[in-house]
Amino acid sequence: MARQNYNVFLPPIRDDVSGYNYLSKLAASIFEAPDNFYTFDFSRCSTISHNGLVVIGGLCNFLKQYETSSSMLKGLGLPSFFAKRKVGFNIDSINPRLMEKLKALGFWNFVNPDHGFIGSSDYIGYREHNTVLEDSEIVSHLQDNWLTDEKLSISELLKSEIVSSIYEIFVNAYGHGLKENPNNQSVISCGHYDPKEKQLSLSVLDFGGGIVNSVQRHVPIPHKEEAFNWALEIGNSTRTDSAPDIPRGLGFGILKEFISLNRGVLRVCSDSYMATVHDSGNYVTTKVDGCFFGTLVSITVNCDNKHYRLMSEANEKIPSYF
């Protein structure tokens, strides 16, 4: 079939239900037709949140890697020259404020350096990570570059709980992101700090096939939504990240507890589902219009040191063995 050129007219994309619905549809459309060429047009887009940037950046990464690996498979042995043309950006009529934001977040550094590049490494923003989890690198980066006293004023205790929770997100992304990664794709993250609201937001995306697929390969739960919800329960794991006889399955439970005590927001999107945790502390699962073919975890954390409790102050009873 002939390759076609498509213009993707991006709308404003916010960290809300309509934003996630749009992103799931966009991901589904592109995953279904990865041979085509796509030009992302920003003329109708006034803003893009962290969730939008990881999905758009992740799709660009997917298209380029797909082109490279499919040409390798065809026996050419060299990266395809089409790879460079896979993705384009129409920024002629982009809102200048959005353009500045994309530059400041380091989006272009990874996606298209011709459109802007920031030299410093200590920005809170967009990143494409190695295909192997560099534990101390991620934690040091969060502690030394993100959560510095100059950027936000929080206690050391809260800082270590935020770092710990974000690390759990990355472990989760690499757990299933690496296992099903035929195109050698990166894990993508995008952080944003809102100094006015004193809120730190972060999205982490992998296109590793998604939670439902992973659960259904290992546990006989035929219904997709049930399989999705099963993975979110504390103690449940598909054990794709290491030896099968080591207990695990706590990542989402720890995140949920942290976010509800912090009065933040947690969203886990995978396949055609989105689970959201607000103040109630419980997951509410809804269907989205498209499909992610991977997992997107987004959090918003309050950093004002007053409207929440720390995990170490939680009332919930965990047996006290030590």
Binding site: L157, P247, I318, P319, Y321, F322
Partner: peptide, 22 residues
């Protein structure tokens, strides 16, 4: 366990509880 923070201790107890079940 000595010198461990409250957060560390809470995680430790959570992990043990899960491991016993596991």
């Amino acid at each position: 366990f000595q010198g461990i923070s409250e957060h560390g201790k809470r995680l430790l107890n959570l992990v043990i509880s899960n491991a016993i079940k596991f």
